[in-house]
Design a protein around this nucleic acid. Structure first.
Lengths: 108, 108
DNA sequence: AATCTTTATCGTAATTTTACAATATAGTTT
DNA sequence: AAACTATATTGTAAAATTACGATAAAGATT
């Protein structure tokens, strides 16, 4: 019987969007790099990755679209930072899930 | 100057794989559903999602491949559970990143 | 044993992602 | 102003993802 066809909640869509943005090693590396430095520009990031500049720019755009990073023009370069709010939201979700799953694995 | 071409670390690849698995609303919904019940089978999950059974099975496979869930045959059905270890690992990473980013946004 | 139930797999089409070279844009330096 | 630097965008090809119908597999029920 397939009667109850639900759709997704706003939150599920939102969390998935953030997770998806983190779903590539290059973007994980970018985030890690961004938190390892005080301020930064794309040029630095390009040198940290085994990718062409255009590709890095594309990855940065995706992180930006997901709200995981934000950037502001600063002279000749662009200063990218991790967006605290989005990361916090994601952190809260994962923590919530993680807390609930602990000590419940009796069936598998 | 593009001299330092690094590759990705094992951890970055691993974290990205987990994040990618969470990067679809259906799979977020599956995880949420799995922690909301004690034990479960795919049939229940199909009714929770606006997707065909084959598609749900495919999403379950991806969660399994990423190590986020595990399943064991139980009579006619398969009991799926969230894999505590993988979720913990992911939780630790996000928490680590999240902690570091707080109170450092001075440039953007 | 025949049928039913549950889940996986296959085949396939549409869409999205990934990567790069080439080029554009815009500020900076000379 | 000419050249340089840093980043974005465009065009494009290859690969991966998403979704579903059809079918397979295998245990459960009748």
């Amino acid at each position: 019987m397939e009667t109850t066809v639900k759709s997704y909640t706003e939150n599920q869509i939102d969390i998935a969007r953030i997770a998806k943005a983190l779903g590539h090693p290059a973007r994980v590396a970018i985030i890690e790099y961004l938190i390892s430095v005080e301020t930064c520009i794309c040029g630095d990031i390009v040198n940290e990755l085994p990718l062409a500049q255009a590709t890095v720019s594309q990855h940065l755009k995706e992180l930006k679209n997901a709200g995981l990073i934000q950037g502001s023009i600063e002279g000749n370069a662009i200063c990218y930072c991790v967006n605290e709010e989005t990361l916090e939201k994601f952190n809260n979700f994962i923590q919530h899930i993680s807390k609930k799953v602990i000590k419940r694995n009796s069936c598998c």
